[in-house]
């Protein structure tokens, strides 16, 4: 119940954030732009709209998660609102979880809105509804939840600017780490291969949540892959939240 109260208050606060509306505006512009881009393309125009649309939702969703997530805890400490909050009989873990869920709720609603705009533009072009798109967006949402946890983790111990840079680095590494897997296959077995394997395990692989290509090009998606990706997301997010709680547990609010 305490977590819900904090989450709803976080949602209320996030709703007031102008960044949110600015980003939403840019998504709408990008989605519209995809329609014009399609006109310039030879071949399957629908694919271009889908591709640009999904990429926009993913990119701007990520910016929302980072820009708002990194300020979440920092703002409470900076504005000293945390003093009265934590003087009540609540655990610091409950506070963090409330903050996380509040932002996840905000991002969920934003994703739904972005999806609605996207589906409308797509429908106006094709006069058909492609439900598979929703699957790709669902996994984008899982990735955004993970990114929120990343931003929250950094926001427990550093300023929003640094936390944003760290989160962005995490995002970039997460989308490039799949190349390590390719490299592992090419390296001969030995110490080097083991080191690469360890590195790949520790680093996030956000490509696990990327089903855009499969959806856009109508390729089959194995159920097992969806299951593994889902479990990967849940475990990694839980791990990040646990880490954030550990950092936050003994922090002094001077």
């Amino acid at each position: 119940m305490k977590i819900t109260t904090i989450a709803l208050n976080t949602f209320k606060e996030a709703k007031r954030d102008r960044v949110l509306y600015l980003l939403f505006f840019f998504v709408a512009v990008c989605l519209l732009f995809s329609r014009f881009l399609a006109l310039l393309t030879v071949g399957d125009r629908v694919k271009i709209i889908k591709d640009v649309g999904l990429a926009s939702i993913s990119l701007f969703g990520m910016l929302m998660a980072i820009l708002m997530g990194t300020g979440l805890v920092y703002k409470e400490i900076d504005k000293k609102t945390i003093f009265t909050l934590l003087s009540k009989p609540i655990h610091r873990a409950e506070f963090l979880l409330g903050k996380f869920l509040g932002l996840v709720l905000t991002i969920f609603i934003m994703t739904v809105l972005m999806t609605a705009v996207f589906m409308l533009i797509l429908f106006l072009h094709t006069f058909a509804v492609d439900w598979k798109i929703l699957l790709a967006i669902l996994y984008i949402f899982f990735e955004l939840c993970l990114m929120t946890a990343v931003a929250l983790l950094f926001s427990t111990f550093t300023t929003p600017i640094l936390a944003s840079l760290y989160s962005l680095a995490f995002y970039l590494i997460g989308h490039l780490s799949w190349s390590l897997e390719m490299l592992i296959k090419k390296v001969k077995s030995g110490a080097g291969r083991v080191a690469l394997r360890v590195l790949y395990t520790v680093l996030p692989d956000l490509e696990n949540f990327n089903f855009k290509t499969e959806v856009v090009h109508n390729l089959p998606i194995p159920g097992k892959l969806l299951g593994v990706s889902f479990i990967y997301g849940v475990v990694y997010t839980a791990f990040l939240l646990l880490l954030a709680m550990l950092v936050f547990r003994r922090r002094d609010f001077v």
């Binding site: 000293k80 609102t81 003093f83 003087s87 009540k88 009989p89």
Partner: peptide, 15 residues
């Protein structure tokens, strides 16, 4: 321990 405690900080900062 804080169940029965009420606290008003110096220069209160609130939402």
């Amino acid at each position: 321990a804080r169940q029965k405690v009420g606290f008003l900080p110096e220069n209160p900062y609130f939402y």
